[in-house]
């Protein structure tokens, strides 16, 4: 057991746990941030996606010591019902989801995409989400929602 410092959703936190604890377990069990989901534990489904220094990463495959000192953003850091991120608003507007289990991971992947490409095509959005599994088949809506958020963010920037 050892104490590690990291930044989560803008807050400095210290976590005392084994160095090889998966970041996903740190978030869910040590910090109570259960928005990030377990799907497979072996980096195949994208349910556990978070941003590490702005890049989308599967938190099940990252260790606590590996992310020490890094800047992590989870779904809880994306927005709140009071201050929603345009992506979250667009997912609500498009009613993009069924069971919704996949959505936090998908929203994080989408955020990473829009940060680097503010005007992605449908194909570019799809490719950016290929690491995320949605078994309910909400894909068509999710693709529309990401495009809608991108358009809204571009408009916001233009103002």
């Amino acid at each position: 057991m050892q104490a590690f410092s990291l930044t989560i959703n803008g807050n400095a936190v210290s976590v005392t746990a084994a160095a090889d604890t998966p970041l996903l377990d740190v978030l869910r069990n040590h910090l109570g941030l259960v928005g990030t989901k377990f799907g497979c534990g072996v980096e195949q489904c994208g349910s556990c996606m978070v941003l590490v220094d702005g890049k989308p990463e599967k938190s099940c495959g990252k260790t606590l010591s590996g992310v020490a000192g890094r800047d992590i953003v989870t779904i809880e850091g994306l927005g709140t019902p009071q201050h929603s991120h345009p992506l979250q608003q667009a997912f609500l507007d498009e009613q993009a989801g069924q069971c919704g289990y996949c959505l936090p991971g998908i929203l994080i992947s989408a955020k990473a995409l829009l940060d680097r490409n503010p005007a992605p095509s449908r194909g570019e959005i799809a490719r950016a989400l290929d690491d995320n599994i949605c078994r309910c088949g909400s894909h068509a809506r999710i693709l529309r929602a990401v495009a809608r958020a991108a358009a809204q963010m571009r408009q916001g920037d233009a103002r």
Binding site: L33, V34, G35, T36, T74, I75, E76, L78, G79, T80, P81, S84, Q88, F91, L92, Q95, G97, C99, G100, Y101, L103, P104, L107
Partner: peptide, 10 residues
């Protein structure tokens, strides 16, 4: 959907 927002906000 009555249940969707909570899922979208994690």
């Amino acid at each position: 959907r009555v249940d969707l927002a909570a899922k979208i906000f994690g």
